[in-house]
Amino acid sequence: MPFIEESDLLDLHKDIDKAQILNERLLDQIKYKNKELKTNKIQRNILAGVTSVFLLGIFALYVFNAGRRSSAPDTNNKLVVYDLDSLDAIKSRMDNLKLKNEELSNVKEFYLAKEFLDKEKIYSVQIKSFVDNNVTLASESLTNTLFVKTNPFYSYSLGNFETIEEARSFRYQLVKMGFDDAFVASYQNGKRIQIEDPY
């Protein structure tokens, strides 16, 4: 294993703590955005309902007036049409709701990717094992690290890859950096399945 200076280790811990705080803030922002998007979805549905009722009312009024005109003798009835500024406001609101719907789709894609990592078989490069669970090298909230209990040890792995070739390439880079003991392992549902052939 390569030797790490104590000051470098402290800097690494500080960077990890900063990343963890940033990740927690991002998760809080995602939760807030989800609440906001749910509220906007409800508002959009209400607006769509009100707009539909409004348009049906206008259509019914038009049909009623057309029926009266055709049955009554022509007495120079003039149909008065009002300019509806509210239609522009409704169009603007609908455009705004479309943008918010796109943001909701992005948040949904984030959660789908996270679910994919939990359910699908992934590959990661294990670089270290520990007897105790008191290691603060990684946080479970960081997406590219795995800290998994493999009896009786706790293993620390880097990277989440869909294919074994990507993981092997990453392992090769780590070996060139001095992590000679690094190896590729497959994981599913947060548990190690097996140690893979490194070549």
Score class of each variant (00 low, 15 high):
residue 27 L to E: 14
residue 138 A to H: 04
residue 148 V to P: 06
residue 13 H to P: 00
residue 80 V to K: 14
residue 55 L to P: 02
residue 96 N to F: 15
residue 75 T to V: 07
residue 27 L to M: 10
residue 143 T to N: 01
residue 136 T to M: 03
residue 61 L to N: 02
residue 56 L to M: 07
residue 113 A to Q: 13
residue 79 L to T: 07
residue 157 S to D: 03
residue 90 I to L: 12
residue 117 L to I: 09
residue 33 K to Y: 05
residue 41 K to L: 03
residue 175 V to M: 07
residue 150 T to I: 15
residue 47 L to M: 05
residue 95 D to Q: 10
residue 102 E to S: 03
residue 179 F to H: 04
residue 43 Q to N: 14
residue 4 I to G: 00
residue 169 S to R: 13
residue 120 E to M: 08
residue 175 V to I: 11
residue 27 L to K: 10
residue 94 M to L: 11
residue 92 S to V: 08
residue 126 Q to A: 12
residue 67 G to C: 02
residue 1 M to T: 01
residue 118 D to I: 10
residue 15 D to C: 08
residue 42 I to A: 08
residue 166 E to M: 09
residue 11 D to I: 09
residue 37 L to W: 06
residue 100 K to V: 00
residue 127 I to F: 01
residue 187 Y to Q: 07
residue 69 R to S: 14
residue 151 N to M: 13
residue 94 M to H: 12
residue 132 D to Q: 12
residue 70 S to N: 01
residue 77 N to D: 15
residue 142 L to M: 14
residue 84 L to I: 00
residue 55 L to Y: 05
residue 22 L to I: 08
residue 42 I to Y: 14
residue 134 N to P: 00
residue 33 K to S: 15
residue 128 K to E: 13
residue 169 S to M: 13
residue 44 R to G: 11
residue 195 I to Y: 00
residue 75 T to D: 03
residue 130 F to M: 04
residue 182 A to L: 06
residue 130 F to D: 04
residue 180 D to T: 13
residue 146 L to K: 07
residue 122 I to W: 02
residue 152 P to W: 03
residue 142 L to H: 12
residue 6 E to A: 10
residue 43 Q to M: 12
residue 45 N to C: 11
residue 50 V to C: 09
residue 6 E to Q: 10
residue 29 Q to A: 11
residue 37 L to V: 10
residue 19 A to H: 00
residue 116 F to P: 01
residue 121 K to I: 07
residue 72 A to T: 11
residue 150 T to S: 14
residue 95 D to W: 10
residue 134 N to V: 11
residue 5 E to H: 06
residue 93 R to P: 02
residue 170 F to D: 14
residue 34 N to T: 03
residue 24 E to D: 13
residue 159 G to V: 06
residue 20 Q to K: 09
residue 144 N to D: 09
residue 198 P to T: 02
residue 4 I to N: 03
residue 156 Y to E: 15
residue 137 L to D: 10
residue 9 L to T: 00
residue 81 V to E: 01
residue 125 V to I: 05
residue 61 L to M: 05
residue 96 N to S: 15
residue 108 K to L: 05
residue 67 G to V: 07
residue 128 K to F: 03
residue 42 I to T: 05
residue 101 N to P: 08
residue 93 R to Q: 04
residue 71 S to P: 04
residue 46 I to W: 04
residue 9 L to Y: 13
residue 97 L to F: 15
residue 166 E to P: 09
residue 171 R to G: 13
residue 50 V to D: 04
residue 166 E to Y: 00
residue 27 L to I: 08
residue 126 Q to G: 13
residue 183 F to I: 00
residue 4 I to C: 09
